[in-house]
Design a protein around this nucleic acid. Structure first.
Length: 266
DNA sequence: ATGGCTAAGATGCTTAGA
């Protein structure tokens, strides 16, 4: 079973690449972030033609998350409720039951600047995510995937010196991410003995060509998922060529089979 | 690396990303 996560930085701009990628790789589950679409504009018919059920949570110009699945899709939850500094909640979380697993597509707030109101929103959002994870884990196996906007360690940025004073690398953000993991999740990209590497490279100044990236997109799996993990890789080819996203897909292959008796995990 | 990129709304600019 292939489970992938991809921040597409506008699904409208990236739809041809996403469709081609699905045709080539045929993942069972694809988690998308930054669709930048309102729900009525989500191209569910294009995915249905490829054999994928889908669910989307978006409200327009910013954010937007989706789950695509060709192993069933039910029990959709949209969230989280944490209010942004604007006063409104944002569409950054969508969970569903797919193939006997609970899966969730997450797009953690950026934070903008350390101690900016959006930085505190980011920390509060991660704290609420921990609660959602705790609830989901009590009901079955879980894969949480997405753009976490946190580099878990200094090894996850191209040069720690370049990030002094910046968001994504602070102790507070890393602790908030660790609290999510501490609910009982494993960082799958690190679990195979061959770390998967960077997932994001800035568009500017040839960062991708120069290897100047960050590992901020993660797939986090519960123990039962981590126990049947075969491999994890970043599809860096998707960061090159015409009109790429600034993120590449992160893909996990697991030897997962639904629980005996066909009972849903959640 | 203090932003020489991209996307999108309604635009000859702003906001946002990280």
């Amino acid at each position: 079973m292939l489970i992938a996560t991809w921040n597409v930085n506008s699904l409208t701009a990236r739809l041809p690449r996403v469709v081609a990628w699905l045709e080539r790789n045929r993942p069972e589950v694809l988690l998308l972030q930054e669709t930048k679409l309102a729900d009525p504009a989500f191209p569910s018919a294009a995915f249905e033609e490829l054999g994928y059920d889908s669910a989307h949570h978006g409200d327009g110009r910013w954010n937007g998350v989706a789950v695509l699945s060709r192993v069933g899709l039910s029990g959709v939850t949209r969230g989280l409720a944490t209010a942004a500094p604007t006063g409104a909640a944002e569409p950054r979380y969508l969970a569903a039951n797919c193939g006997g697993l609970r899966v969730a597509s997450v797009y953690v707030p950026n934070g903008r600047e350390v101690d900016h109101p959006f930085f505190h929103y980011k920390l509060a959002w991660l704290q609420q995510l921990s609660q959602f994870v705790q609830a989901d884990l009590s009901r079955g196996e879980l894969v949480l995937g997405g753009d976490f906007n946190v580099a878990p360690t200094d090894q996850d940025v191209f040069d720690p010196q370049a990030f002094l004073g910046a968001t994504h690398v602070t102790e507070r953000e890393r602790s908030a991410l660790q609290a999510v993991l501490n609910q009982g999740l494993v960082d799958l990209a690190l679990a195979t003995g061959e770390p998967a590497g960077f997932t994001y490279w800035d568009y500017r100044q040839g960062f991708f060509r120069r290897g100047l990236g960050m590992r901020i997109d993660l797939l986090l799996g519960s123990a039962g998922v981590a126990g049947c993990l075969d491999r994890v890789f970043v599809d860096r080819e998707e960061r090159s060529g015409q009109r790429p996203s600034d993120h590449a897909p992160l893909v996990a292959e697991v030897s997962w089979t639904s629980p005996a008796g066909g009972a849903p995990a959640v």
